[in-house]
Write a protein that binds this DNA or RNA. Sequence first.
DNA 1: CCGGGCAGTGAATCGGGTTCAAAATCCGGA
DNA 2: TCCGGATTTTGAACCCGATTCACTGCCCGG
Lengths: 251, 251
Amino acid sequence: MGTKERRERERAAREQRFLQAARTQIREQGLLALQMAPVARACDYATGTLYQHFASKEDLLLALCAEQAAKRVEILLRAGRWEANSRDRMFALVTGDMLFALASPDHFRLTQYVFTEVVWRAASECRRQAVLDAHEPIGALVGGIVHDAISCGDLDARGRAPLELAIGQWSMTIGMHTLVHAEGVLEFFHLHEPYPMLLRHVQLHLNGLGWKPLLDPFDEQRLQEKIDQVCATLYPDLERAGPVTIAGTGD
Amino acid sequence: MGTKERRERERAAREQRFLQAARTQIREQGLLALQMAPVARACDYATGTLYQHFASKEDLLLALCAEQAAKRVEILLRAGRWEANSRDRMFALVTGDMLFALASPDHFRLTQYVFTEVVWRAASECRRQAVLDAHEPIGALVGGIVHDAISCGDLDARGRAPLELAIGQWSMTIGMHTLVHAEGVLEFFHLHEPYPMLLRHVQLHLNGLGWKPLLDPFDEQRLQEKIDQVCATLYPDLERAGPVTIAGTGD
DNA sequence: CCGGGCAGTGAATCGGGTTCAAAATCCGGA
DNA sequence: TCCGGATTTTGAACCCGATTCACTGCCCGG
């Protein structure tokens, strides 16, 4: 009988509705104002029902994070599938991440919050695992690109594992997301256009690794072309207000 | 009369006691378990008195963050004063930050939490400003080092402002702190010894910038010497369990 | 020595996450 | 179709802890 199965499906659908409602509430009122009862009410369920899906408020936040992470992964996988040299694919990965961050600022605010000791600890073990699992493909993807680079001679591993070589890019990207969302910090130091700077520094770092073919990221023209190419080829759907421009005056 | 002045001094002293008590409570029970009433009680004051110093719990957290940031700045300033070439000073800065992070893991967990939208927004405006002000010297310091590098020819600015050139290092460092404190993430990707990797990637990035004198960070011997030199010269008091080692098998 | 004001107090208030006993619903078997 | 036990849903009550505020008593200038 398909009864059990149908139940299961309905339950999953309801969970989606809850997550959707939470997302809406966060978008409209901010993370700070998220409350459990209104989320349940918005879906025409009692508070208690919500707790059959999520062990706590933090648990719900992790679930939200995992769900959005899946979307992010989907974007990033495009870079992995791209028919281009290894360096361009690695760069495309960071670019995709940047575009996703610009398109979904809420996701990174949430992620930042979720990985905080206080929140992380307050969620259930299995939910934590789900968040990690949701991010796993990114590691595999990055590892794969580095591996390709090494085996085709674009990159000399110097005896290091793929992820050890990629962690510089990774932490730089995460750090920039953090800075962008740390309200007031960049303005305080008179820094603007953080993401274009990230792209430039990623190229610098790739050069430092000796990842061929080298590219001079201070050659505005070349760098801009590269970015435009990646955006147009892989992420035509993610360009919002306008294209990303490297420009900047440096004054 | 000195009455007003004395009052002021006593008030400041009390604030210190509150912060100290909060720090102790966090160290012993974790950030999650911090409660206002016990902090007040621990200092033999009523809850209400605590609120004469801090507008909210989050406000207290920001104050704690600002206070610890001052300590961090103190450490980092050593790198600025060091009689060494610009590149070594920049590297020493990141190394100092790493040592401070290892010595005060609580500080970075707190900082990560504090810069979160939810917490940041829940603190008072002037407290937020105080946190930013506490970090300002770091920007000045970094800017100064980059500036020196440019003017003595170690680094070609290519028309960029000092902080625009340093933001790569900065975001990489922040990102690594974030990764280190995101429980379970590094283990999940089988990455160990994050800070040695950070130091290596910082050197790689400096090479990418063409910041002279270049150094091959895959030359274990050389890199280790550099690290040892910095630690011994500038941070002899911060080496805890043992020296930082680059080693790593790369398998 | 007196009185006004100012800091300190901690019990009461308030808000919101979480629980759980009762009510409703479902479902397989007669 | 109807019945009774199992399962799910409900939402008001509970609990915890941050925050407030009416009251207390101390300090200081006159």
